[in-house]
Design a protein around this nucleic acid. Structure first.
Length: 227
DNA sequence: GCGACAG
DNA sequence: ATCTTGTCGC
């Protein structure tokens, strides 16, 4: 799975340089800290692409810890950038922000579909969104972007650290369900690893993906059909 | 120089 | 992310 990728158009090196600088700029604003209070609302977000040039972003708001859905919104906009590893936020965050604005009730924390600080420059889309919204965020990704880890046990609840070169903790690899590929959880902004992991586990309901992300994923695909 | 590479 | 059928295992 994804072992080999056919060669794609080489991204403009100058654009990559500028976006990387913007990313480092935003990184200086990231704060890793525990939540000030237990969340009452948690949101999940995700994007889908109805056409190669159209982005559809979804936000699902759930009451915590019951996880009942209280609101779901979406926004459709134009794609302005191709997918470039490490620069995902510049492709999806703009449209996600517009979808976020449509929420009547704002969440206490957001679970993002992607990495937090488990990123080459510690600035994954979860951290990026958190800084731009000045809101607590953390990431839950299905695939590793960077860092090393030892396969966690195959039983639900097993956890292994995701570390960078020099041992810094980038995130945690979590087996959310028996015998399924593990999830990569890392803090984004105004959140810490313990909180990110605790909330991820608290949002599991028998599926591989925690409810916020699973539902956002579900609606991103569902709304897409209605177009 | 050779891999690796979220969604 | 997206395209796409059947199939294996709990």
């Amino acid at each position: 799975m994804a072992y080999y990728r056919p060669p794609g158009p080489a991204p403009d090196p100058l654009l990559v340089r500028d976006l990387t600088r913007l990313q480092d700029q935003l990184r200086s604003q990231v704060r890793l800290e525990p939540l000030s209070a237990e969340p009452r609302f948690i949101a999940g977000c995700d994007s889908s692409f109805p056409t190669p040039e159209t982005v559809l972003s979804v936000f699902v708001l759930l009451r915590f810890p019951t996880l009942e859905v209280v609101e779901k919104v979406y926004h459709v906009g134009p794609v302005t950038l191709p997918y470039i590893p490490g620069l995902l936020a510049f492709r999806e965050a703009p449209n996600l922000l517009l979808a976020y604005e449509k929420l009547r009730q704002k969440p206490d924390i957001i679970m993002v579909d992607g990495h937090g600080i488990a990123h080459p420059r510690r600035m994954g889309i979860a951290a990026h969104l958190g800084v731009e919204l000045n809101q607590p965020t953390f990431g839950v990704a299905k695939q590793r972007l960077t860092g090393h880890f030892v396969e966690p046990a195959h039983s639900r609840g097993s956890i292994a650290p995701l570390t960078g070169k020099d041992g810094e903790l980038l995130g945690e690899v979590i087996r959310s369900k028996d015998n399924v590929l593990p999830l990569f959880v890392s803090p984004g902004h105004r959140c810490d690893q313990a909180t990110a992991t605790r909330l991820t586990l608290a949002c599991l309901r028998g599926y591989k993906l925690p409810e916020p992300t699973r539902l956002a994923d579900h609606w991103a695909a569902e709304f897409k059909k209605e177009l």
